[in-house]
C-alpha cells in the first residue's frame, strides 16, 4: 500500500462488508441502524483521537460523542467519492480541539502511587499500565497537531496525505510532525524496554 492510498482504520474491516458510502447513503435515507454500524466501526478510533487531544478519558468520550452526533448532522456535506474515515476524523479533531479550548482547567490522570513511589515489584499488567500512563503524559506534552498526527499515522493507519487533509496542513508538515512526535515517544518506549530487560 502506497502512502497516498486510503488506509481505513483496522476496526473498519471487521464490521460488515457494507462500504462506508453505502452506510452513509442509507443513513441519509433515514435508516438510523446504518449510522449505528458506522458508529460501531469508528468509535474506537474516534475515542482514541479525542483522547490524544484531551487527555482526560471522560472529556474525550464526551468529545467523541459530540463529534459523532455532529457528523450525523453534517452527513450531507460528506462527499461519498472520498473515504469516510478522514472526513470523520476531521470532525473529531475539530470537536476535541473546540472542547479543549473551552476547558478552563486541564485535568490529568493522577499517577499511580506505586509507580511514583517505586512500590512493590510490579507485575506485567502494572508495567503495561505504567507504560500507558507514561505514554499519555508524553503525548500530552507534545503540541496538539503533533499528537493528532502521530496517532492518526501510527495507530489509526492513515496516510500522510490523508492526515494533511484532516488537519488542513501540507503533507510535508504532517511528515515533520510525525517525525518529531515519534522521536519523543520512541525514546520513552526504548527506556521502558531497557528497564524491562
Amino acid at each position: 500500500m502506497t502512502p497516498t492510498e486510503p488506509q481505513p482504520p483496522r476496526e473498519a474491516a471487521r464490521i460488515t462488508a457494507e462500504t462506508d458510502a453505502d452506510l452513509v447513503g442509507r443513513t441519509l435515507a433515514g435508516d438510523r441502524s446504518a449510522f449505528g454500524v458506522l458508529v460501531e466501526r469508528y468509535s474506537a478510533s474516534v475515542r482514541r483521537v479525542a483522547r490524544a487531544v484531551l487527555g482526560d478519558p471522560d472529556d474525550a468520550d464526551d468529545a467523541a460523542q459530540d463529534a459523532l452526533l455532529a457528523a450525523l448532522v453534517k452527513l450531507r456535506q460528506y462527499d461519498p467519492q472520498r473515504p469516510f474515515g478522514p472526513w470523520l476524523m476531521r470532525v473529531v479533531a475539530n470537536a476535541a480541539t473546540d472542547r479543549r479550548r473551552r476547558r478552563t482547567v486541564r485535568r490529568v490522570d493522577p499517577l499511580d502511587g506505586n509507580i511514583v513511589a517505586g512500590g512493590p515489584a510490579p507485575d506485567v499488567e502494572m508495567q503495561r499500565r505504567a507504560l500507558g500512563q507514561q505514554l499519555r503524559e508524553a503525548l500530552a506534552a507534545l503540541p496538539e497537531r503533533r499528537r493528532i498526527a502521530v496517532v492518526l499515522f501510527d495507530v489509526e493507519g492513515y496516510s500522510h496525505a490523508e492526515i494533511g487533509r484532516i488537519l488542513g496542513v501540507p503533507e510535508g508538515t504532517v511528515r515533520s510532525e510525525v517525525f518529531h512526535a515519534r522521536r519523543a515517544l520512541r525514546a520513552l518506549l526504548k527506556d521502558w524496554k531497557e528497564e524491562e530487560a
Binding site: 478519558p57 500512563q133 495507530v155 518506549l189
Partner: peptide
Amino acid sequence: ALGAALRAALTGA
C-alpha cells in the same frame, strides 16, 4: 511497536 503501545494507552474501556 509504537502504534501498538499508543493504541493500548489510548483505547477506552
